[in-house]
């Protein structure tokens, strides 16, 4: 693996201030990892593990308390204000797709406009180029051209998630973060979206950072896994190895908790 490190996270720490008598919480507590160009890495954990906070810091939606994040070799300072130039460059470096397809699209904006808006911002396309890019992106995510003039309200959850992916891809990011992007979808739609992500990766060599609680999904999409618990990484390694021969007892517990044929739920293992 001689690929360049695309995302470097070093001793990342995020403390949320406590309020109303609650103590402050370290949501992310000393997390370090590297994602190389073209890799698909998954952050796995349960709620409160800090996986989502980590992802949000990477794309700049939260500011870290301490630690360093570098994308494409350039550190992302946790500054309150960034220049227009810097903001757009960051947009072309990393994009994110959220979990809930119902709230991640502007309800007032037509699908086509949502997608071309991003493409125009980053690449200053004229009208014809915009139309071509829109057709290309819709095709990539498996939507039809008629969808361009639809409002999000008229689309199903799976279709909305395709639109969200198209919007993210419109910036041609090198890193795409998927924050539980398939966990709100029906089983039969989930498979379609996972395949779509696999296709995109094959075509563009994009780098993925999955944030997920679903080990089956992770096994399907990720090359490498980081298991997080209470703000720390407890185990890291190639997907196959971590999920087949877990070293950490918590990883084992997670694996044992997944319902599967022949599985019986057991009590008080934690």
């Amino acid at each position: 693996m001689a690929a360049e490190p695309l995302l470097e996270v070093e001793s990342l720490r995020k403390v949320f201030p406590g309020h109303r008598g609650h103590p402050e919480v370290a949501a992310v507590d000393g997390v370090s990892f590297t994602v190389r160009e073209g890799e698909a890495v998954a952050l796995v954990g349960e709620s409160g593990s800090g996986k989502t906070t980590t992802a949000r810091i990477v794309v700049g939606l939260e500011r870290q308390t301490a630690g360093e994040v570098s994308v494409c070799g350039r550190p992302r300072e946790p500054a309150a204000r960034v220049t227009t130039r810097e903001r757009r460059r960051r947009g072309r470096e990393a994009q994110i797709v959220f979990q809930d397809p119902y709230s991640s699209l502007d309800p007032c904006q037509k699908i086509g406009s949502a997608i071309t808006e991003v493409a125009r911002l980053h690449f200053g396309l004229d009208r014809a180029e915009c139309a071509a890019r829109l057709a290309d992106l819709l095709d990539q995510v498996g939507l039809r051209e008629q969808h361009a003039s639809a409002l999000p309200r008229t689309l199903s959850g799976g279709e909305r998630q395709r639109v969200a992916i198209a919007c993210a891809l419109a910036a041609e990011p090198r890193l795409l973060i998927l924050d539980e992007a398939v966990s709100a979808l029906d089983v039969s739609i989930q498979a379609q979206i996972l395949n779509l992500l696999a296709d995109v990766r094959e075509r563009t060599r994009i780098t993925y950072l999955f944030v997920s609680h679903d080990l089956a999904v992770v096994r399907q999409v990720a090359d490498r896994v980081l298991v997080m618990r209470a703000g720390r990484v407890v185990e890291e390694g190639p997907t196959q190895r971590v999920l087949d021969q877990p070293q950490d007892p918590y990883t084992q517990l997670l694996l044992d908790s997944v319902p599967r044929p022949g599985w019986k739920p057991t009590r008080a293992i934690a």
């Binding site: 609680h213 080990l215 997670l254 044992d256 009590r267 293992i269």
Partner: peptide, 10 residues
């Protein structure tokens, strides 16, 4: 969460 789910189901 999955681990909690397993316990509640059990």
């Amino acid at each position: 969460d999955v681990t909690t789910q397993a316990e509640v189901l059990a």
